[in-house]
């Protein structure tokens, strides 16, 4: 691309940026997002409105997003050739080694807690899954010796877990279909929503939170580990 056309393009983009920014300042606020909170509490029993939206109102989107992660993991694992990971051959100091040993259980437990409390406090399956994935990656980085990778979970088991989680997600959805006549239905199935704020409340939301947490955790783990193997 010649310099002139590049300049033209960039200036065009800038001009439009200015127009859009100007238009946005003129715009009235249409809706106050906070108004949703009482509504979600009534409908889903979840205190965390974000989780309510992710795992109930728009659970189909979440199924799709979890699928994207699964797919990316599969693709990355398939495309990267199996070879020694030179990056893992680095010797680490004992401070790091022992520090990680002490931290790892806490990180994992934090991840699980974030998943489990997704419906009553900030966090949820995606956040918790990322934390869990971090802990597995930590482990692999620290304890892989001489480029020989060590796993928390073997790659084959990873795949099994992923696929089982996916089956479970769809299974919960089909349960809703069978009981309430709509896929991924929650309160309509007659499941007790429980007392808002308690751990066992909000119907299927905590279940879906856990499932997607597992999916994300394993999926991200696969992606990161595969990228090491270059």
């Amino acid at each position: 691309m010649s310099r002139i056309s590049a300049t033209l393009l960039v200036s065009g983009i800038i001009v439009f940026g200015v127009i859009v920014a100007y238009e946005l300042t003129l715009m009235p606020r249409t809706a106050d997002p906070l108004n949703h909170a009482p509504l979600t509490l009534r409908d889903t029993g979840a205190v965390n409105a974000v989780s309510a939206i992710l795992f109930d109102y728009r659970a189909l989107d979440t199924l799709g997003e979890a699928t994207v992660i699964l797919m990316t993991a599969t693709v990355v694992a398939f495309l990267t050739p199996r070879a020694k990971a030179s990056m893992l051959a680095v010797r680490l100091s004992s401070i790091v080694l022992y520090g990680v040993v002490i931290l790892l259980p806490f990180i994992t437990i934090l991840g699980i807690a974030v998943m489990a409390h997704g419906h009553i406090s900030p966090g949820g399956g995606f956040t918790g899954g990322v934390i869990v994935a971090t802990s597995t990656v930590f482990y692999a980085v620290v304890y892989s010796v001489g480029g020989q990778q060590s796993y928390v979970i073997a790659p084959a088991a990873n795949k099994l877990i992923e696929n089982t989680a996916m089956t479970a997600f769809i299974g919960v959805g089909l349960l809703g279909l069978g009981l309430a006549g709509s896929f991924l239905a929650n309160a309509q199935t007659g499941i007790p929503l429980g007392t808002p704020g308690e751990l066992l409340s909000a119907g299927t939301i905590p279940v879906l939170n856990l499932i997607s947490g597992v999916k994300v955790g394993v999926g991200l783990g696969i992606i990161v580990m595969s990228l090491f193997l270059e």
Binding site: T67, G173, G181, S182
Partner: peptide
Amino acid sequence: NGLFTELPVLLIVIPLAGVPVLYFTARR
């Protein structure tokens, strides 16, 4: 009523469910 109102979702979910199904059949 019944199944047909939910039919569109199934059209998406069945292929999605196909992913684990293929995995499990391949395993066996």
